[in-house]
Amino acid sequence: MWQFFHKLGSPKWFYGIAARLMPWLLVLGLLCLGAGLVWGLAFAPKDYLQGNSYRIIFIHVPSAFLAQSVYIMMASAAVVTLVWRMKLADVFVKAAAPVGLVLTFISLFTGAVWGKPTWGTWWIWDARLTSMLILLFLYGGVIALDRAINDEKSAARAVAILVLVGVVNIPIIKYSVDWWNTLHQPATFKLTEKPSMPAEMWVPLLLSVIGLYLLFGWLACLRMQTEILIREQRTRWVQDLFHVNGGAR
């Protein structure tokens, strides 16, 4: 088991595994997402309360869901960075943070656009929108800190500490924003109640969530490969990559 763990930390080993996994992740991800979105857009019945604008849910919920889980994944990787100093964990944090930022932005944007026909306004200081906005700031902070530190090892550890501090704060932020929201806003605005959703709605939703997860996997592998190549470009195995494949382009 420890040998496996050690292997997992080897950039060379990961590079090969990622190269083999990536086509599957990409194809399956695009298929799932495509099926979910086409189903959701064209075939799912319309919501009797919100009409067709609810179809935004098929991208809003997956991106919001993923934006949050990416941060949790980054926090787990941060623990690994701090405890075992595994390089791959740090590579993952660096690769995933910008993706998380984009997904958070998508969920905020779609939430705002959804709000216009549903609530009659582009932005309300709804608890969920506000906590996603704060999540966007957290991602921004992680990326800014990583870019500001030149030394690779220091950047890895500093970012890991920041991510962990952030993840301790996320429940507190979420709770306090919920509480603040009930204080300041009458709770008249509610998104659709999820449990009452019929199968023709939640199956495509589930499909697009799975699809986006797979695409995130692909993106993470790709960006980690990039980071690994930058860090290890002088090593023998990177040079061997080209000679084994015939050398010339």
Binding site: L41, S53, I56, I59, V102, T110, K116
Partner: peptide, 28 residues
Amino acid sequence: AMEGHGPYVWASYGVFFVLMAVLMVGSY
């Protein structure tokens, strides 16, 4: 048209596709 909700739905999907495409193609 989506019964008048078209602009909202298509704007959301448009932003989603454009950003994901930029991210994926850019990373690649």
